[in-house]
Structures are given as structure tokens and as C-alpha cells.
């Protein structure tokens, strides 16, 4: 484990229920197989990165795990709760930040957070405290009173992530959190993610940026044509191909049948 103090701290917990456990997950869209028997296990307090080219099925995976859509077959559990049979238990445990930011443009940044607070049934004072804390952590204090419609891409994404954290989730899904962001905003996002890991949150991150997976993830799985074609720590994956970078792994493994 190169990265993630969170991993080490949580090692003692490793025998307990994994944060995410998936077996034989399948999903097709009108005859086209998007996920073809996915299995994976993410221990609590670690960062797991699902890496893959566009259209590999990463978003579909997040949508199934976050109860947005149903799988055609297989089982997925979040903190021990079946996504199909106990969706509300799962929803109470997760926070989601999608590729397309899901903020309310008519509301200000602070109002967006307070709306989440009310929907999580936090008390007024607790919601205000948490909102203030998140605004500070995510560098949105100055923009707190401005309408979200006026936010830059990076600010929107940070607000989006902050909204997903209002409920104090144990598992956070980040679906391509830095796609379309400038390098500065991307670094900021990475720092935020590292901060979350430090607090013991489990992170499921999809990305098409190899550097991002390399920087953040404890384990990486490479998704290609609906199957996981490689899985391991970034270091393990790099050893598998000559060249020794994640780029080489990515290209070697996704080129075969493409």
C-alpha cells in the first residue's frame, strides 16, 4: 500500500463486511451487453478505482451501485445491504457525485447544501454547522451566497461533491469527478478526495485518467467491453506489462479486441 493512511488504519477492520461487494453483475441495454459478469470487493476505508475507456460501462456500474438502475443479474451489496432489496439502507450509506453535476442552479451554494441537510433530516443547527464546514473545506465560502448557475466548472463539481457529503456517507461514489476540469481544479479535487480517505470514507472512483487512478487508488480495476480485464494495486498492474506505466497497461489490455 503506497497510498492511503486510511487503508492502514482500517486494516484491523478488514475481516468485517466490505464496503462494496459485487458478484456476477450483468446489465444490457437493448441487446447490447454493458456489464458482463462483474465481481469486485472493496474493503472499508479504501479507494477503489474503476478505470476504462469511454463507453466501457463505468457509469452503468455506478448507477447500479447507487440504486439508480437495476442490474439484470448478479448481486451487489453496499455495507452489507443488497442494492435491490434494501435500496433505502444503501441510499442512507452513500453519497454520489456524477459526471453531470447534480446541483440546483436556482439555489445558492449554501442553499443547495441546506436542502440536502433537510432531506437527510438533520436538525437546523446541525445542518448549518455541516454546511459551513463543507463550504470551508471545499473553498466555497465566498461563493456560498451566489447562485449555483454562476459557478465555474470546478466550483460546481466541488459543490456537487459537498452535497453528496451532507449526509455523512460511509461510501462515496465519484463518477469521473475531474472530467472536463482544468489542471488546477483537478488537483484541488484530488486533495479533497485524499482528505475524505483520511476520515475513513470508502471511495469508489471511476475515471478515464490513468494518472488519477495512480494518484488516488489503493486498488484499480480495468473495465473493458463489460468485463474486468485486470485488477490489482497500481504497482501490481504496472509490473504486468513492459513499459511499466498505467498507460501501457491500459493500452495493452484495451487494444486486444478493440
Amino acid at each position: 500500500m503506497i497510498r492511503g493512511g486510511g487503508t492502514l488504519r482500517r486494516m484491523t477492520n478488514d475481516s468485517s463486511v466490505p464496503a462494496i461487494e459485487v458478484t456476477g453483475l450483468r446489465r444490457s441495454y437493448g441487446g447490447q451487453v454493458v456489464l458482463d459478469g462483474i465481481g469486485l470487493r472493496v474493503p472499508e476505508g479504501t479507494v477503489f478505482s474503476l478505470l476504462g475507456p469511454n463507453g466501457a460501462g463505468k457509469t452503468t456500474m455506478v448507477q447500479i451501485l447507487s440504486t439508480l438502475i437495476r442490474a439484470d443479474g448478479g448481486v451487489a451489496r453496499i455495507c452489507g445491504h443488497d442494492v435491490r432489496r434494501e435500496p433505502d439502507r444503501v441510499r442512507a450509506a452513500i453519497g454520489v457525485t456524477g459526471q453531470f453535476s447534480a446541483v440546483d442552479s436556482y439555489l445558492t451554494g449554501e442553499e443547495n447544501l441546506l436542502l440536502m441537510g433537510r432531506l437527510h433530516h438533520l436538525g437546523r443547527a446541525a445542518a448549518r454547522r455541516r454546511a459551513a464546514d463543507l463550504l470551508k473545506r471545499f473553498d466555497l465560502v465566498e461563493a456560498a451566497g451566489k447562485g449555483a448557475a454562476a459557478y465555474s466548472g470546478g466550483m460546481r463539481r466541488r459543490l456537487d461533491l459537498a452535497m453528496g457529503l451532507m449526509g455523512d456517507p460511509r461510501v462515496v461514489f465519484l463518477d469521473e469527478p475531474t472530467t472536463g476540469l482544468d489542471p488546477r481544479s483537478r488537483r484541488d479535487m484530488w486533495d479533497i478526495v485524499r482528505g475524505l480517505v483520511g476520515r475513513g470514507v470508502t471511495i469508489f472512483l471511476t475515471t478515464q485518467y490513468l494518472e488519477e487512478a495512480d494518484q488516488l487508488a489503493d486498488r484499480v480495476a480495468l473495465l473493458h467491453h463489460g468485463r474486468i480485464v485486470a485488477e490489482g494495486t497500481p504497482a501490481e498492474l504496472k509490473q504486468r506489462v513492459p513499459g511499466g506505466t498505467l498507460d501501457d497497461v491500459f493500452l495493452a489490455l484495451t487494444e486486444v479486441e478493440a
Binding site: 441510499r91 447534480a102 432531506l119 453528496g164
Partner: peptide, 8 residues
Amino acid sequence: ARFRTMAI
């Protein structure tokens, strides 16, 4: 979509 991923 966000609301749908919340326990509301």
C-alpha cells in the same frame, strides 16, 4: 438523479 440516490 441525485434525489433518487437519497433515502427520501
